[in-house]
Computed example of a mutant assay.
Amino acid sequence: MTRGKGNRAPRWKWIAPVLALGVVLAAVHVWLNTNLVTGDAVCGGLVSTARADSVLSGGGRISDGDGPDVRPGDAVEFSCTVEASSFLPGADKGRLRISGTHERGDFAFTDGRWPSPATASFFSGPATGGVGRDHGWVLLPAGCAKAAPAIIEGYAPQGSDPTALAGLLTDVANRAAERAGCAPDRPLTAPGTLPAVPAAQKIPEDAVCGIKGLAFPGPAAGREAARQRVQGRTGPTWACEVSGHATYAVTREPRVLEAITTSPGFGEQPRIAGLRVSGFDERHVVADCSGTPTYFSMELGPTYTAALESPDTPSPKAVFADFVTTAGKNFGCSTTAP
């Protein structure tokens, strides 16, 4: 009996340190690899850690480095980088870049840093925005506009869930509007689902972009190699990209039209296809179509631009006029008397 009791003391001598080490390792794991001690928001309270985690979806601790970079005198404008880091073997570091900016109202349909509208999933209603494969935006309420409409913009890792990104950006928009004192009576609501990005397809003989009578935007010889994507066949925003040649877009989304028509530089433009139009230039315009403001835009691709010297390449003015004429028939557009 005495000898049995004597064996217990050495056993506890090594069990106690092992338990203590386990507690320390568990605490380190919680600190480095989870958000239990991070709080429920980063970037000065603008970005929910839960929402960020749903987009990054790789696990790890959500952090924001030095926090948001805020522009003095403008409560809407900021930028912030959010990271999910983990010390677990095989874990990747995920990163989000979130910002609040002021943009021209038709920014989503112009060349530059924005995804092609034919590869973006648009949503409207309680929240208005669009999400591409790694980039998205949400309009802030009209009361948040200053010199130009205000948006929340976000970049996410490729392959992120687009619906989760739309939810994150909508949540940030609500928080930013609340902070800036321009929040609406009811908060913006993110979409539960998003339309899929269309696959590229051969161009049918009788209907470029699905529009009867629309001419191919370039020399006929380039038609066979080109492919098209058509997005938004049933929603208020429609877009078509003819690879290398042109990207067309039409929207009647009320919030987007409001943003466009209240932007600096919006004004009367020369008639197009007999229509009286206003806009920013000759290829980004709004027409009155059966009483509904309707925005038309066209961006030209490098293949078309390279073929401009070819005698069978239609001019940009002719290509856009053809688009407005043929697409406009679907929206009740007609010539307005002078």
Rank of each mutant, 00 (worst) to 15 (best):
G4F: 14
N7E: 13
P17A: 06
L19G: 11
V24E: 02
H29R: 00
V30G: 00
T34I: 03
V37W: 13
G39M: 08
V47E: 12
S48W: 11
A52W: 11
L56M: 15
D66K: 12
V70Q: 14
P89Y: 05
D92K: 13
R97N: 14
I98D: 03
G100P: 06
R104V: 14
A118F: 04
A120R: 12
S124M: 08
H135C: 02
G136T: 06
A145G: 10
Q158F: 13
S160W: 04
P162M: 00
T163M: 08
L165D: 11
A166L: 01
T170M: 02
C182R: 06
L188S: 13
A199E: 14
K202G: 14
P204T: 04
L214A: 01
A215Y: 07
P217F: 02
E224R: 12
A225G: 12
Q228T: 07
G232T: 03
T237G: 07
C240L: 05
R252C: 06
E253C: 04
V256M: 14
E258F: 11
G265T: 01
Q269E: 13
P270I: 05
G274K: 02
G279H: 04
A287V: 05
C289Q: 03
G291I: 07
M298S: 08
T303A: 15
S310R: 14
K317D: 15
F323M: 02
T326K: 15
T326H: 15
S334Y: 03
A337K: 15
P338Q: 14
